[in-house]
Design a protein around this nucleic acid. Structure first.
Lengths: 225, 225
DNA sequence: TTAAAATGAAAGTATTACTTTTATTTTTGT
DNA sequence: ACAAAAATAAAAGTAATACTTTCATTTTAA
């Protein structure tokens, strides 16, 4: 997968950034190392100053790409949803059987990313890690409604709509395709978090393979039966 | 319900606060008005300075109750889970039928709080609102593991464990009682948020009554069938 | 090769998230 | 009712953050 994808770039809504970080070397370093640093420090303790020091650049240069760290986070989140959307489309391409397509869709969205899935210069495994930890902070702001109007969440919306259509294709009489799609996408992130930090509240054993995927497969197909 | 409950106080883990806010008039004002202010300003723009001004008190006095706004938020969140736990226990008390008990449990947890459910001086409707908007910020910190060790999330854990036992009582062969319980508790908050801010991604009509409860009833009973 | 664009260095500002000190008020025990 | 203790208020101080600005230097592209 990696060789094929290394020539592709995901399109991120333009108003999220000031200058396209994919268009320059410095921009790409900002993306690459921001993921590392956010993972290390957590979003609240992450600053553009620290990032600039890390990449031997300057605070003011980072500010020429993103208005602030919230916008950078929205960029990374959009990238993540875009990547999931790509995986989803790629995996169900040419699959006629609706049940099989839905199974593959759920797997694409809920599985744990592997090291070798690198799409360009982004480390998807690390990105998944920071999305699990931090994504809801970027969603749950006082300005969601305005930011939604600005189109900052279009990729997320497209992903959920796509998944809901696959659900409806399998069972057209189901009343909650969008709600279930949201539950799968966001719920799998939440379960990742719980599995990492609240082991007491997990049903999974160490030996289970992709238990979160299994749970959402079971949940979905039971709901649609 | 309100008259009965006005004599009860919820017990919040001691190390969350410096001085028990339920023990003094100022403390109770801090709780009451912090909910209002967080709702109005959002958690990031909420400060102890603003809160102190609002209640005609002083910044330094607020700091004698809580170490910082994160701890205050953990207090409010614990209160919310404690209140849900209380509702849950109260509603299924004396109900023998396992299916009926589970139905009631899901309703207690996922329904929209009403104005008249006031437990003491806390406005539960407003509290629910800020929990929907802000709760994940208090969970998703770099220090979760330590805070979990400190017992800051015991009430949440107790709530989820209780619900998972009700699930298992109804169907003892189900493999994911804890995962499903987490999905119901946290998923219903997420769906509230989506319903408020991402109408495009909602299946519900304005005329639907408690659609989120209906969704989780359907999801749960299908999963357990 | 020269003008334009991008980047870097350094200093500046307003706000935040506290802390400290000291004064005043309230509560409590006798 | 009164003294001692506890709680609260006022005010000033500090370190860090989240930027912004200005100007110098480097890189890139016609």
């Amino acid at each position: 997968m990696s060789t094929l994808l290394s020539n592709l770039t995901l399109t991120i809504p333009e108003n999220i950034y000031i200058k396209d970080p994919q268009s320059s070397k410095l921009g790409r370093r900002i993306l690459e190392y921001s993921i590392q640093l956010i993972k290390q420090e957590g979003l609240e303790k992450f600053t553009f100053k620290k990032l600039a020091d890390e990449i031997n650049s300057n605070e003011s240069s980072v500010y020429r790409y993103f208005e602030n760290k919230h916008m950078l986070m929205l960029y990374l989140i959009s990238w993540y949803w875009g990547w999931l959307e790509y995986k989803l489309v790629f995996r169900i391409n040419n699959i006629e059987d609706k049940k099989n397509a839905l199974q593959r869709a759920i797997t694409a969205i809920t599985e744990t990313p592997r090291k070798d899935e690198t799409f360009g210069f982004i480390n998807e495994e690390e990105l998944h890690h920071i999305i699990v930890q931090e994504y809801s902070k970027a969603f749950h702001t006082i300005d969601v409604d305005e930011e939604n109007k600005n189109g900052y969440f279009v990729i997320y919306r497209r992903l959920v709509e796509r998944l809901s259509k696959i659900i409806s294709a399998y069972n057209s009489s189901y009343c909650y395709p969008l709600t279930l799609a949201n539950t799968i996408v966001q719920g799998s992130l939440k379960q990742n978090f719980l599995h990492q930090h609240f082991k007491q509240l997990s049903d999974f054993k160490e030996s289970d393979e992709e238990p979160i995927t299994q749970f959402f497969q079971h949940l979905t197909f039971k709901s649609l039966s």
